[in-house]
Design a protein around this nucleic acid. Structure first.
Lengths: 169, 169
DNA sequence: GTCTATAATTTGATAGAC
DNA sequence: GTCTATCAAATTATAGAC
């Protein structure tokens, strides 16, 4: 299943947002990496807000599928979420897309901020489904995971994520 | 002690960065809020990188002073850090300046990213000085605090910070 | 110190040919 | 679907008058 052009554009956009944030990438930058002109990117996604919203929604859906898959294989929600973030950090050195979008917050078009919020909301509820955990625990654990990615990214050290979350393993 | 123009520019810049991030504010925006023209802002801070670096350094120094002051009054490092972030979130609804700069990471001029890293490094070491805590605990607690601010900001709900960090109180 | 004016570049977005 | 060409606006930054 070869990714079509639309998917490829979203792949590049996701990587750029996770590196520079919403205000830190441009249509021309995406176009250059894909190997087309910026007008072609606009053909697939008329506005920047629509592109970012589509990227955030795909990220959330993919993440939800991964969580459900891992939990079906017997993992606890806390361990599953930690492992998913840990692997993403190791593989591409980038933090959670929705964490960075959440921080840029109300400076973003409403649909983009809404998708980020929906991701975090799912995270809190999903983690809170673990035995003996409540909603406040879900928020506590997700906060620790997002913050640990923030630290690891600032220091360029994936192991800092491991140390900051070793109590969740 | 009336703040001079230079301080006022830094005040506005700090607020804007904490709302929109480094790539989300402009000299003209600062100038408009201060009541001058953008060329005057350039007189005080020749480049955007220098302005952001100065703002981040001042933020770090002020925070260090607040931490030392609160600890001198008998607070434990964990409680002191939680309380300082909690109050900032309540007072102006904005998260840690260096948290947002850390996330934008390598997309930033090196001196700016360096100041953010220095703040986080101080946070980890400062918290780890609490009795019975080590460096990994410092990273864990700071991660939880930065992540809790991220969540509270995304949902526009300061109480979410309280719930996500109630175990640190 | 602040201003006007402007340079040089980048941005998001559109029109229309192919 | 992709291109060339272009637009209007915004950006960082500088020169020089006052």
């Amino acid at each position: 299943m070869v990714p079509d052009r639309r998917d490829l554009i979203m792949d590049v956009a996701e990587r750029l947002i996770r590196t520079h944030g919403y205000n830190g990438f441009s249509f021309r930058e995406i176009a250059a990496e894909v190997g087309v002109k910026s007008a072609s990117v606009h053909y697939h996604f008329p506005t920047k807000a629509e592109l970012a919203t589509a990227v955030a929604r795909r990220y959330r859906k993919k993440f939800e599928a991964k969580v459900q898959d891992a939990e079906a294989n017997g993992g606890s929600p806390v361990a599953v979420w930690r492992d998913l973030f840990r692997r993403a950090l190791r593989e591409d050195g980038r933090m959670c897309l929705c964490g960075i979008l959440a921080i840029e917050g109300d400076a973003l078009p409403a649909p983009v901020a809404g998708e980020a919020r929906a991701f975090l909301d799912y995270g809190i509820r999903s983690i809170a489904e673990a035995p003996d955990l409540n909603d406040a625990d879900g928020a506590r654990v997700l906060a620790q995971l997002e913050g640990a990615m923030l630290l690891a990214r600032s220091f360029g050290d994936p192991e800092l994520f491991d140390r900051a979350t070793q109590d969740l393993a």
